[in-house]
């Protein structure tokens, strides 16, 4: 790591710590977070999403096991599970489903007015909703970790390197915080949940596909360096191989903060359009 990376990392951490501290102060943030989590888990949608993701993860996991059993390869079980086509096919449907109702429902019901005329700061509202979605996203991935854990207990250890395990969940976390922020922004922009879901899906996909240019198209040598930063597929490969790269931490974290600040301004838009 060179000095500029260190400085940027420290800066990002400071922003994260300040926002967490701000969120905890006064306690209204926690109140909204609790309410959001309640309304997520009291609705059937959450459980359906969790069941489906579990099913698909199980499918990827079984397929990966099959590959390991049939052929002699040097990849890990985790590598095959998280880079299979079925994984990527379903992965980007999770975000719209989690985030679409966050703000658009409040706008549609008009409850955004009762919320923001109560002594609640907009930043508290934003962080609470974002964190609620994030918590749900983490919970979705717990069953898949159980798969690997059981496999670890029951088998020889050459196929499940711990580095690869940590790397895989680190990158799922990073890509998650980024895409959920996109979902928040999409949801804050419209009253219509369907539009929010479509916008979220489109933007998540667009970001993902920019990365694919590097994968699939013959790009000039000079572009490769910068395109690499956008390439989620490449990031996943790197992390799954067990290398936890600080550049990706900085990339996803800084973009998350940027997009959340956009969302904040969208929520405050009514204040400065006058």
């Amino acid at each position: 790591m060179n000095t500029s990376t260190v400085i940027i990392t420290i800066l990002l951490l400071v922003i994260v710590i300040i926002s967490i501290q701000k969120f905890l102060s006064g306690g209204t943030g926690i109140v909204i977070l609790k309410k959001e989590l309640k309304s997520i888990f009291y609705s059937p949608i959450a459980w359906i999403v969790m069941a489906l993701v579990m099913l698909l993860n199980g499918f990827s996991f079984t397929a990966a096991l099959e590959i390991l059993r049939k052929t002699d390869v040097d990849e890990t079980l985790i590598g095959y599970t998280f880079s299979s086509t079925s994984f990527w096919l379903t992965y980007f449907f999770i975000f719209p489903v989690i985030t679409m109702r966050l703000f658009s429902e409040e706008k549609k019901l008009g409850t955004i007015e009762t919320l923001l005329t109560a002594p609640v700061q907009t930043i508290h509202l934003l962080l609470a909703k974002y964190l609620a979605a994030l918590v749900f996203y983490f919970i979705i991935w717990i069953p898949s970790a159980v798969n690997f854990f059981l496999f670890r207990i029951s088998s020889a250890d050459n196929a499940n390197a711990i580095g690869s395990f940590i790397g895989a969940y680190a990158i799922i976390f990073l890509v998650g915080i980024f895409n959920i922020a996109i979902g928040c922004l999409a949801s804050a922009l419209t009253k219509n949940q369907l539009v929010a879901a479509m916008a979220c899906f489109t933007f998540c996909m667009l970001h993902f596909l920019v990365g694919f240019i590097l994968q699939d198209l013959p790009v000039p040598e000079s572009w490769q360096g910068s395109l690499f930063y956008f390439s989620t597929v490449k990031h996943v490969q790197i992390f799954i191989s067990g290398l936890i790269d600080s550049r990706q931490f900085i990339y996803y974290l800084s973009f998350t903060i940027l997009i959340l600040s956009f969302t904040y301004n969208v929520l405050e838009y009514r204040k400065w359009k006058a």
């Binding site: 309304s39 009291y42 609705s43 019901l109 008009g110 409850t111 007015e113 009762t114 005329t117």
Partner: peptide, 11 residues
């Protein structure tokens, strides 16, 4: 404050 049309959470 009670806004017009009284927005509430249905769930």
């Amino acid at each position: 404050y009670m806004p017009e049309n009284v927005p509430l959470y249905d769930d």
